[in-house]
Lab assay of single mutants.
Amino acid sequence: RLRTTILPEQLEILYRWYMQDSNPTRKMLDCISEEVGLKKRVVQVWFQNTRARERK
């Protein structure tokens, strides 16, 4: 499996959503993934990793 590259524009959108809610619902993940143009699972893992980084 290839690692997904997240573009700066996509990152900006993801962080904007993250500021609103760091733990989005499944429905929100659907909306975010549509807006960003990434698979739902990629967005979900990005949120998990970002929460983990914040805890450090």
Rank of each mutant, 00 (worst) to 15 (best):
R26C: 15
I6D: 03
S33E: 07
D21P: 01
L14W: 00
R41M: 10
L2N: 14
E9P: 05
R55W: 03
W46F: 02
K27E: 14
Q20Y: 08
Y15H: 10
I6C: 07
T25M: 06
L29R: 03
G37K: 08
V45I: 14
Q10V: 02
L2G: 14
P24M: 06
P8E: 11
K40L: 06
I6M: 09
V42I: 07
M28N: 10
E35C: 03
K56N: 11
L7P: 13
R53Y: 08
R1C: 13
E12A: 07
F47K: 04
N49A: 08
G37Q: 06
L14C: 04
E35P: 05
W46S: 02
L14R: 02
I6V: 09
Q48W: 04
R51K: 12
A52D: 14
R51F: 00
Q20T: 08
T25G: 11
S22V: 12
L7Q: 13
K56T: 04
Q48L: 07
L11W: 08
F47E: 04
Q20L: 12
Y18N: 03
V42Q: 05
C31T: 15
R26N: 15
P24K: 02
R16T: 08
R1F: 09
E12C: 00
N49E: 15
K27Q: 10
I6K: 04
N23K: 11
Q20V: 10
V43N: 00
E34D: 09
N49V: 08
K40S: 14
R16Q: 08
K40N: 09
F47D: 00
W17N: 12
V43Y: 05
G37E: 06
Q20C: 04
V45R: 09
S22E: 13
E9H: 11
Q48Y: 14
E54T: 06
L38G: 03
W17D: 06
R1V: 02
R51D: 02
Q10G: 02
T50V: 09
D30Q: 10
K39F: 01
M19V: 11
W17H: 12
L38Q: 01
R16M: 11
R55L: 10
R1G: 14
L38E: 05
S33R: 04
A52F: 03
M19C: 09
N49Y: 04
R1E: 15
V43T: 05
Q48I: 12
V43G: 04
S22C: 07
K27N: 11
P8I: 07
I6G: 03
L29Y: 07
R41T: 14
W17P: 03
W17F: 09
R41E: 15
R55M: 15
V36D: 02
S22H: 13
E12P: 07
R55F: 10
E35Y: 00
V42M: 07
E54W: 00
E9I: 00
N23D: 10
K40H: 13
V36R: 02
V36I: 05
I13T: 12
M28F: 03
P8L: 14
K27W: 05
R55P: 10
R41D: 14
K56H: 13
L7V: 07
T50D: 04
L2R: 12
M19L: 14
Q48A: 12
Q20G: 04
E34Q: 13
E9F: 04
I32R: 01
L2M: 15
G37H: 02
D30A: 13
L2H: 10
Q44G: 09
L11T: 13
N49Q: 11
R55N: 13
E54P: 00
K39D: 15
S22D: 13
G37C: 05
M28K: 14
R26P: 14
Y15F: 09
E54M: 05
V36W: 02
K39E: 13
N23T: 10
T25F: 02
L29E: 07
R41H: 12
E12V: 04
L2D: 15
E9W: 11
C31S: 14
T50E: 15
E35M: 03
K40Q: 12
E54H: 06
C31H: 15
R16G: 11
G37R: 03
R16S: 09
E54I: 06
R41S: 15
T25R: 05
E54A: 05
E12N: 13
K56D: 07
R41N: 13
P8V: 06
F47I: 00
Q10N: 06
T50W: 02
V43I: 09
N49M: 09
K39M: 01
D21C: 09
R55S: 14
E54R: 04
L38F: 03
E54Y: 09
S22M: 08
L14A: 02
R16W: 08
S33W: 07
D21H: 06
K27D: 15
K40T: 12
R26M: 15
E9Q: 09
Q20N: 08
R3A: 07
K39P: 15
D30R: 10
R53S: 13
N23Q: 09
I32A: 05
R41L: 08
K56Y: 09
R26G: 15
Y15W: 14
L38H: 10
R3G: 10
Q48N: 09
L2V: 13
I6A: 05
K56S: 08
K27C: 10
W17K: 13
R55G: 13
K39Y: 00
R1M: 05
E9S: 08
W46E: 03
L14P: 09
K39N: 13
K39A: 11
L14M: 05
D30T: 11
V42A: 05
R53F: 13
C31K: 13
E12T: 11
R26D: 15
N23L: 07
Q20K: 11
V42P: 00
Q48V: 07
V36S: 13
Y18F: 08
S22N: 13
S22T: 10
E54F: 05
A52M: 13
G37W: 06
S33Q: 02
V43C: 08
Q20M: 13
S33F: 02
E9R: 04
L38C: 06
W46T: 02
M19W: 11
C31Q: 14
P24F: 03
Q10A: 01
Q44E: 15
F47H: 00
L7M: 11
K56L: 11
F47C: 02
L7W: 02
T25P: 10
F47G: 02
L2K: 14
C31P: 05
A52S: 11
Q48T: 07
P8H: 09
L38K: 06
R53I: 06
A52T: 09
I6N: 00
K56Q: 08
R41W: 11
Q10M: 07
E34K: 11
N23C: 05
M19A: 14
L38I: 08
L11G: 11
V42T: 12
F47Y: 02
I6L: 09
R51H: 03
E9G: 10
D21F: 01
M19I: 05
P24A: 00
R41I: 08
L7C: 14
A52E: 15
K27G: 12
Q10Y: 03
K40D: 07
Q10R: 03
R55T: 12
E12F: 06
N49H: 12
K27T: 12
I32F: 03
Y18R: 03
K40P: 14
Q44N: 06
R53N: 14
D21N: 08
R41P: 14
G37S: 00
P8C: 06
V42Y: 07
T25S: 12
P24R: 01
E34N: 09
D21R: 04
L2S: 14
G37Y: 00
Q20H: 08
M28Q: 13
Q44R: 11
K40E: 11
P8N: 06
L2T: 13
E54G: 07
R3K: 14
L7E: 14
